[in-house]
Design a protein around this nucleic acid. Structure first.
Length: 421
DNA sequence: TCTGGGGTCCTAGGACCC
DNA sequence: TCTGGGGTCCTAGGACCC
């Protein structure tokens, strides 16, 4: 029988901030989304204060000030690097792992079956804390879905941060106490429908009639039910290259003129192209959209998008930017206050699939060399050291990030300083 | 004034084919 | 009972995840 473990960092973003600022230990801290818009991560102390996940920050600003909450803008340079360190540590203990998100990984612990698996998980947990400073919880079970629930229980019911749901008798008790809405793959819509069918707990869902469930829902729910029964349907997966790459941001203030939108779209496209080349892919098209505020009902609203296919698959930022700007100009209307723009690279394929077009202009690899040089310089000297002029220099529309902590681990100039007496 | 961003998978329905 | 039948491909939209 397989044994999956799900390792999940506790309050990941908030914990990253604490690693480099231990004075924050035990203090309420929260992390904001891009543009300092929503609350996207909360320490336990903030959860206790009743501040909700995803709420708009401006509604809570005063409350936070009154209660001494430490507020941070997202610092993805730091979080991404901390994630890399945690995953590297996990790989030391278990080379077969699936990095599921920035703060979660599934491990295959089948080879530890019969041994003291809880002690092993406790050891992993201790080493991750020691080597990276990051607190994690570990849940185990015969399927990924059960490992997820075990992780939820590890956080909710234990002080050890480790929980094993391999035992069937134990599962009877704990699945009955686990609300169906907290099962992996059961979101808001489906859980509402399930509640109407008198399915309230994970146990109810597990014991539901498979045929009826299949008729009412998709094969995804069917797999979830089988997984709850202990039948593994979801194997560990390798990292797959992305099939589409998006880049979008809200502006820090309304943008009205085309030239600023052009800068933003160029900038987002350049960012997406960096990701595209990093995963050694080519895109076959690009989609661009812009819209006004979704919340301000007094202003006239407008939103539109347009896409274009390329004559041949591309990874050159300058070429893709020029197509993206074509799309933008086809949808731009003056007289509106735009709040956001975004682009999506479409139909992304591995760069080994490149089909040479007999009619295309042969540049003798010049474009490849330029892009390699651009990526190389930015890798060596830091992100944004060199960029394409169309991205703009001042970027007055650029997102707000008023509470960002230093990029302690990825910028020489922002290294933490230690004073010794 | 101020409300995030980036992904995947599945299904239904339409277009089109023989 | 059944009122032509069966298949593929594509896209839009919905659902989920973090």
């Amino acid at each position: 029988m397989p044994v999956f473990a799900l390792v999940d960092c506790n309050n990941f973003y908030a914990s990253c901030e604490r690693v480099f600022n231990p004075a924050l230990e035990g203090k309420p801290i929260l992390v904001l989304s891009n543009n300092d818009g929503c609350i996207i991560a909360r320490s336990n102390e903030v959860k206790t204060l009743g501040i909700p996940m995803g709420g708009p920050f401006y509604k809570w600003r005063d409350f936070c000030e009154k209660n001494g909450v430490f507020v941070f803008s997202s610092n993805y340079a730091l979080y991404g690097d901390m994630s890399y360190r945690v995953m590297a540590t996990l790989k030391d203990f278990c080379p077969t792992l699936e990095i599921y998100s920035i703060d979660e990984a599934f491990l295959d612990l089948e080879s530890f079956q019969g041994k003291d698996i809880i002690a092993h998980a406790a050891l992993i947990r201790k080493k991750v804390k020691m080597w990276t400073g990051m607190p994690v919880s570990i849940g185990m079970g015969p399927t990924k879905t059960l490992a997820k629930i075990a992780n939820y229980l590890a956080k909710k019911t234990t002080s050890t941060g480790v929980f094993d749901l391999s035992d069937e008798v134990l599962r009877e008790k704990y699945l009955a106490d686990c609300p169906v809405s907290s099962v992996w793959g059961i979101g808001r819509r489906i859980s509402r429908k399930l509640e109407n069918m008198k399915i309230h707990s994970a146990k109810d869902l597990r014991d539901a009639d498979l045929k009826i469930m299949r008729r009412n829902f998709s094969v995804v729910v069917e797999k979830t039910i089988r997984e709850l029964r202990g039948v593994s349907c979801l194997p560990l997966e390798d990292v797959q290259p992305r099939k589409q790459i998006m880049s979008s941001r809200s502006f820090n203030r309304a943008v009205t003129v085309l030239s600023e939108l052009e800068e933003a779209v160029s900038h987002y496209t350049a960012k997406a192209c960096i990701k595209l080349r990093a995963q050694r892919s080519l895109a076959n098209g690009v989609y661009v959209y812009i819209h006004t505020s979704l919340f301000n009902e007094k202003q006239p609203s407008y939103g539109n998008g347009a896409s274009l296919s390329f004559a041949e698959p591309l990874d050159d930022s300058t070429q893709i930017i020029s197509v993206a700007l074509h799309c933008l100009r086809s949808i731009y209307k003056s007289g509106y206050r735009y709040s956001k723009a975004g682009i999506m690279l479409l139909d992304v394929v591995p760069n080994t699939l490149k089909q040479f077009d007999l009619l295309s202009f042969d540049d003798n690899g010049k474009s490849d060399r330029i892009m390699k040089m651009l990526d190389g310089i930015n890798k060596k000297l830091g992100k944004g050291s060199i960029f394409i002029c169309a991205e703009g220099i001042e970027r007055p529309w650029h997102m707000k990030s008023g509470h960002r902590s230093p990029r302690y681990t990825t910028q020489w100039s922002e290294l933490p300083t230690v004073f010794c007496k």
